[in-house]
Amino acid sequence: MHSDLSPHLHTPECNKLINLLKQCHAERKFARFVGVCNTFDQNVVDCLRNERIERSRENRDKARKEQQRVRERMRQLEKDQEARH
């Protein structure tokens, strides 16, 4: 089972592979059950995995930057508070 295969959720490369898999399934309605489309399916799985890994990396980077921004803001607030006392 794949995640949602809607085109707007994936890169053009993955969309191309998804379309090839769908085409294989459409052209080989019964043969697909014996593994005829497995190569296409594995290519889609690999592409989706790579997308997920890249999204995770981007989210981690974004979270690190946000955490750094918060730390700097907290330091500044602490400095301001010490200066007032």
Score class of each variant (00 low, 15 high):
residue 22 K to R: 00
residue 41 D to Y: 10
residue 38 N to A: 07
residue 26 A to I: 01
residue 35 G to K: 01
residue 8 H to G: 00
residue 16 K to M: 07
residue 17 L to R: 07
residue 78 E to C: 11
residue 8 H to A: 01
residue 20 L to G: 00
residue 15 N to D: 04
residue 84 R to S: 08
residue 26 A to Y: 07
residue 18 I to Y: 01
residue 41 D to Q: 10
residue 34 V to Y: 06
residue 7 P to R: 00
residue 76 Q to V: 08
residue 39 T to E: 11
residue 83 A to F: 12
residue 4 D to Y: 10
residue 57 R to L: 13
residue 59 N to P: 06
residue 7 P to F: 02
residue 40 F to N: 12
residue 78 E to R: 10
residue 26 A to G: 00
residue 78 E to M: 09
residue 6 S to C: 08
residue 83 A to C: 13
residue 45 V to F: 12
residue 36 V to H: 11
residue 60 R to M: 13
residue 57 R to E: 14
residue 21 L to K: 03
residue 9 L to K: 01
residue 32 R to C: 09
residue 84 R to C: 13
residue 77 L to K: 03
residue 9 L to E: 03
residue 46 D to E: 15
residue 20 L to W: 05
residue 10 H to Y: 05
residue 2 H to I: 00
residue 22 K to I: 07
residue 21 L to R: 05
residue 12 P to D: 11
residue 61 D to G: 15
residue 82 E to H: 09
residue 68 Q to G: 14
residue 38 N to E: 10
residue 70 V to W: 02
residue 13 E to T: 00
residue 49 R to L: 14
residue 79 K to H: 11
residue 8 H to V: 12
residue 39 T to P: 11
residue 45 V to Q: 15
residue 62 K to N: 07
residue 43 N to T: 04
residue 83 A to H: 10
residue 56 S to Y: 13
residue 35 G to F: 11
residue 53 I to V: 08
residue 85 H to N: 15
residue 62 K to H: 14
residue 46 D to C: 05
residue 28 R to H: 11
residue 28 R to V: 04
residue 36 V to I: 05
residue 84 R to M: 14
residue 20 L to N: 09
residue 74 M to Y: 09
residue 20 L to H: 05
residue 49 R to I: 07
residue 31 A to L: 11
residue 11 T to Q: 09
residue 4 D to N: 14
residue 57 R to C: 12
residue 58 E to Q: 11
residue 28 R to E: 10
residue 85 H to F: 14
residue 72 E to Y: 03
residue 30 F to Y: 10
residue 54 E to L: 15
residue 38 N to Y: 10
residue 44 V to R: 04
residue 13 E to F: 13
residue 48 L to R: 02
residue 44 V to L: 05
residue 70 V to I: 02
residue 62 K to G: 03
residue 21 L to W: 06
residue 10 H to I: 05
residue 57 R to N: 12
residue 15 N to C: 05
residue 44 V to C: 07
residue 27 E to W: 06
residue 59 N to G: 09
residue 30 F to G: 01
residue 79 K to T: 08
residue 62 K to M: 08
residue 48 L to Y: 06
residue 44 V to A: 02
residue 68 Q to T: 14
residue 83 A to M: 14
residue 50 N to F: 08
residue 34 V to A: 04
residue 72 E to C: 04
residue 76 Q to G: 05
residue 12 P to S: 01
residue 79 K to Q: 03
residue 45 V to T: 15
